[in-house]
Design a binder for these strands. Structure first.
Length: 153
DNA sequence: GCCAACGTTGGC
DNA sequence: GCCAACGTTGGC
């Protein structure tokens, strides 16, 4: 089993939105970055992912999700009415993919980015999220880092 | 709102 | 293939 981190702006879609979904499950659509897409294609059913709130007053990890369906075409790229429509994605040869995720649990308290940064020179050294200039919205997390982060809860 | 750090686009 | 211009992300 692998571990991941997936970002979302809570104004657009928060962990509470996920909690309100039927079966607390949704498709993680709208990824329009090749590196992030390629990582999503590596995801396997049963993998775990941190839900991360970005671009908000308190960025940080707010809970845990599980991958319940492996990568399949992101149909929102085909629909002109969708925000993430992409004319270059052809239904016969889709450019963008998404996975389905379900909520495992929401943390009682957010694990703020600032708390992660405090460990960036030690236990969380080289974590992708903490790398300077990091902009990836989907990224891998090592088991070592995953376990250490859970101790911050 | 600012700005660093990328990623993408398009002319050559 | 190079690279300047432009757009986006995301913390602060």
């Amino acid at each position: 089993m692998k571990y991941w981190l997936m970002k979302s702006e809570p104004d657009a879609y928060s962990i509470d939105d996920l909690a309100k979904e039927k079966n607390q499950t949704t498709h993680w659509d709208g990824i329009r970055n090749y590196q992030a897409r390629n990582l999503m294609k590596e995801m396997k059913k049963g993998d775990r992912a941190f839900f991360y709130h970005s671009s908000c007053p308190q960025p940080g990890i707010v809970g845990i999700m599980e991958i319940v369906r492996e990568a399949y075409p992101d149909h929102t790229a085909f629909d002109k009415k969708e925000k993430y429509f992409d004319a270059k994605s052809d239904p016969d040869n889709p450019r963008w993919y998404m996975v389905d995720v379900t909520l495992v649990r929401k943390f009682a308290q957010i694990i703020p980015l600032s708390a992660l940064r405090e460990l960036s020179e030690k236990a969380l050294k080289d974590m992708v999220l903490l790398r300077k200039g990091n902009r990836l919205s989907v990224m891998p997390v090592t088991k070592k880092h995953w376990d250490r982060i859970l101790k911050l809860e």
